[in-house]
Design a protein around this nucleic acid. Structure first.
Lengths: 184, 184
DNA sequence: GTCGACATGTAAATTGTTACATGATTTA
DNA sequence: TAAATCATGTAACAATTTACATGTCGAC
């Protein structure tokens, strides 16, 4: 049915890189290769088709340099809007439990793109969803821990602790963002 | 060239579930749906083809029940060996920085399958690779933090803290496994 | 008897991986 | 001038998602 499917997480990662100015496909690849933000593939077979996809969706535009055959990509107005819409989306429990890295990507790109209110809302939602996930896991743990094999139990504890760590981070981030937005 | 490619992470997750006895495809789906171990898709379009793949690789065998057309899958000897080999693999920096959830899956299935020595080696390797990743990130942070935009900086901090949390977990797990293996 | 859960599968489209191919430009 | 890096792409293949299709069984 749809021949214009919605962007993937990789697509948004690319859009996010483009928010501060145009980049070549090769630059984008190198950034993914070195920055270790998330774990997006930097292979040409991933990036160049993704850029084509984004062009087809009219979220980026390609400027060819006639002399050397290098080209640059930049965000279109629609691309900026798509990026903002993606960052502004309400956070679900599933986002926290299954797509935390995408959530952190959404956070990382917020500077200069989301207004202060939306930035705070993002972290507040993240905090409340994290609390939900953690209390759910703890309830399960309290019931089942004794019957779980040691490796399973420890792996489960790792999950709880990771979310707890993320919660502590989010609380601190909220404080820092608040300070920046008020006295910055 | 190769028409027998090596198992995916999902494949190993299935093999791991099968280590304690045969299961139907539907059971496997329900376990993935409810247990939230990793975030493996439980849709029929994922699980049934994966089981076919594993059968083709001779890592599982399918037992059909003639009366009702239900079937069960169990590990073959080759499947057990593949699972063990996967769990025993040396841990690389990349495993830690890009495939932590697969690493935790490998850990979760170790009970009863890896000998005590290999269990300790796994955690020791995990600890040393985590330390490497963390010190690399901290070095980067010390150099660049001041010039990073606040959202980028905070997202980066989240990464460091997550690995630090995982390191603390691994140290504790090592202690617990040691205790269990000596006085258990 | 019908609703929901059990149960197994396929088909099309999309995405991503790996490997290949090509050529320009810079640096030792 | 040879090697490394810059730079862009394609082709074949593998894997996943989404949606569809079908049928059984137990409960109410």
């Amino acid at each position: 049915m749809a021949h214009v499917s919605k962007p993937t997480t990789l697509d948004y990662a690319i859009l996010g890189l483009l928010k501060d100015g145009p980049l070549s496909g090769y630059r984008i690849r190198k950034i993914f290769e070195t920055s270790a933000m998330g774990n997006y593939s930097s292979s040409p077979g991933t990036i160049y088709p993704a850029l084509k996809r984004l062009e087809r969706l009219a979220l980026v535009s390609k400027e060819n340099n006639e002399e050397n055959k290098k080209s640059q990509f930049s965000l279109t107005a629609a691309g900026k809007q798509a990026l903002i819409d993606w960052m502004r989306q309400d956070i679900s429990t599933e986002d926290v439990s299954k797509k935390l890295s995408e959530l952190m990507l959404r956070f990382a790109f917020q500077g200069g793109y989301l207004n202060g209110e939306d930035q705070l809302r993002f972290l507040e939602q993240m905090i409340s969803q994290l609390k939900l996930v953690i209390s759910g896991m703890e309830a399960f743990y309290d019931k089942r821990a004794e019957t779980m094999p040691i490796h399973g139990r420890l792996a489960f504890e790792s999950g709880i602790q990771t979310y707890q760590c993320q919660l502590d981070w989010a609380k601190n981030a909220l404080k820092e963002i608040k300070n920046t937005n008020t006295d910055g």
